[in-house]
Simulated assay, not measured.
Amino acid sequence: MPDTTSSDVDTVLLDVDGTLIDTTYLHALAWMQAFTARDLTPQWWEVHRAIGMGGDRLVGEICGDDVEESLGDTLRDDWERHYRKLLPDVRPLPGAVDFVRGLLDAGYRVALASSGKAEFTDAALEVMGFERADLAAVTSSDDADDSKPAPDILEVALKEAGGARAIVVGDTVWDVASAHRLPAACVAVRSGGFAEAELRDAGAVLVVDHVGELARRGWRP
Results as ranks from 00 to 15, higher is better:
48 H>A: 01
86 L>Q: 12
60 G>N: 05
121 T>C: 14
25 Y>T: 07
22 D>L: 01
21 I>H: 01
40 L>R: 12
90 V>G: 02
124 A>S: 15
33 Q>V: 00
56 D>S: 10
35 F>T: 01
101 R>E: 14
28 A>R: 06
85 K>I: 04
20 L>F: 11
50 A>Q: 11
122 D>T: 03
77 D>I: 05
94 P>H: 08
112 L>A: 10
44 W>D: 01
74 T>W: 02
92 P>Q: 06
38 R>P: 00
113 A>L: 04
13 L>I: 11
81 R>M: 08
59 V>F: 10
13 L>P: 10
35 F>A: 00
76 R>C: 10
104 L>I: 15
17 D>R: 01
24 T>E: 14
61 E>A: 15
85 K>A: 15
59 V>S: 11
135 L>G: 12
59 V>N: 11
75 L>Y: 13
37 A>T: 09
139 T>C: 15
117 K>T: 07
105 D>L: 09
134 D>K: 07
132 R>S: 10
45 W>F: 09
95 G>A: 12
53 M>Y: 02
28 A>G: 01
126 E>F: 07
116 G>W: 06
126 E>R: 14
45 W>Y: 11
98 D>P: 00
131 E>V: 12
129 G>Q: 10
89 D>A: 14
16 V>L: 13
33 Q>S: 02
103 L>I: 09
148 K>P: 09
112 L>I: 15
104 L>D: 07
29 L>V: 02
73 D>P: 04
32 M>W: 12
87 L>P: 01
84 R>L: 12
146 D>H: 13
46 E>W: 01
70 S>I: 11
91 R>M: 07
88 P>M: 08
43 Q>M: 03
57 R>D: 14
123 A>M: 05
90 V>D: 04
137 A>W: 11
108 Y>F: 15
91 R>S: 09
38 R>H: 15
54 G>C: 04
94 P>K: 06
15 D>R: 06
81 R>S: 15
129 G>Y: 13
61 E>P: 01
81 R>H: 14
148 K>L: 08
124 A>D: 05
91 R>W: 09
127 V>A: 01
67 V>E: 04
71 L>V: 00
38 R>F: 12
44 W>I: 03
90 V>A: 13
136 A>G: 07
132 R>T: 12
68 E>P: 00
121 T>F: 02
21 I>C: 04
127 V>Q: 01
142 D>L: 10
120 F>H: 15
41 T>I: 02
89 D>V: 04
88 P>S: 08
132 R>G: 05
54 G>Y: 11
149 P>R: 03
37 A>Y: 04
40 L>M: 13
82 H>T: 02
18 G>W: 08
130 F>Q: 05
150 A>V: 02
146 D>Q: 13
123 A>Y: 08
74 T>G: 14
124 A>E: 04
15 D>M: 03
41 T>D: 13
145 D>K: 12
88 P>D: 11
27 H>A: 06
143 D>F: 07
71 L>G: 00
50 A>C: 14
50 A>K: 00
15 D>I: 02
127 V>P: 02
92 P>Y: 10
